[in-house]
Design a protein around this nucleic acid. Structure first.
Length: 187
DNA sequence: GCAGTGATCATA
DNA sequence: ATGATCACTGCC
């Protein structure tokens, strides 16, 4: 007996869905950032599932990185960055916009990758607004059980399409503002 | 070019 | 309790 909902040809690309595990995130932030390009950020709210391909990220590499929130050490807010990789770090910026980061690198090494754009959601504030991401996800793991996770859907990103630039909005960061820690996936 | 907006953190 | 500081956005 045939199922009512037929599988469309476009679904063939969906067959390759691999949820990124903690081991993917437990590596240096710059490497994780680069490799997140082309991966899919997946959001489930109730029965609705929305996926958006990640196209812009920034790496914040540790306490010595003068642009990283952990540059002042452990505080209640930065505590999550000191924890295990693969957990969400979500904070409010300028009193209006939620910023979505995923913790990277080793435990007790505070580093993270900011997800700035995915799919139609261009800009870190628009991304969280579009995917209904807020404070509730802060400190939760990037697993399907939390409703927000990352999948490898088999997209390969050629180096020629990857642009590296300094990070946005960190003019205060001294020499670190010049580091090419922002990665953009161009069409 | 810059106002809006509120959590966070240091200072007290 | 108060003040400075923001990993932004949208409108002027």
């Amino acid at each position: 007996m045939k199922k009512k909902t037929g599988v469309k040809p476009s679904m063939s690309v969906m067959q390759n869905r691999k949820v990124l595990e903690q081991t993917f995130f437990a590596r240096p932030a710059v490497k994780v950032a680069r490799e997140l390009l082309g991966k899919h950020l997946v959001r489930r709210i109730g029965k609705t599932e929305l996926a958006a391909m990640i196209t812009e990220v920034e790496a914040y590499v540790g306490p010595h990185d003068l642009a990283c929130h952990a540059r002042f050490g452990r505080t209640p807010r930065t505590e999550v960055m000191y924890g295990a990789a693969g957990h969400w770090y979500v904070y409010l910026c300028y009193g209006i916009h939620w910023m979505l980061n995923v913790v990277t690198d080793a435990e007790d090494w505070p580093a993270a990758v900011l997800v700035r754009a995915a799919g139609e959601f261009i800009g870190p504030g628009k991304l969280t607004k579009g995917l209904k991401i807020g404070q509730r996800l802060n400190t939760l793991p990037a697993t399907p059980s939390t409703g927000l996770w990352v999948e490898d859907r088999g997209i390969r990103v050629p180096r020629i399409q990857v642009e590296r630039t300094p990070r946005i909005g960190i003019d205060y960061a001294g020499e670190w503002k010049h580091e090419l820690f922002r990665f953009v996936l161009n069409a």
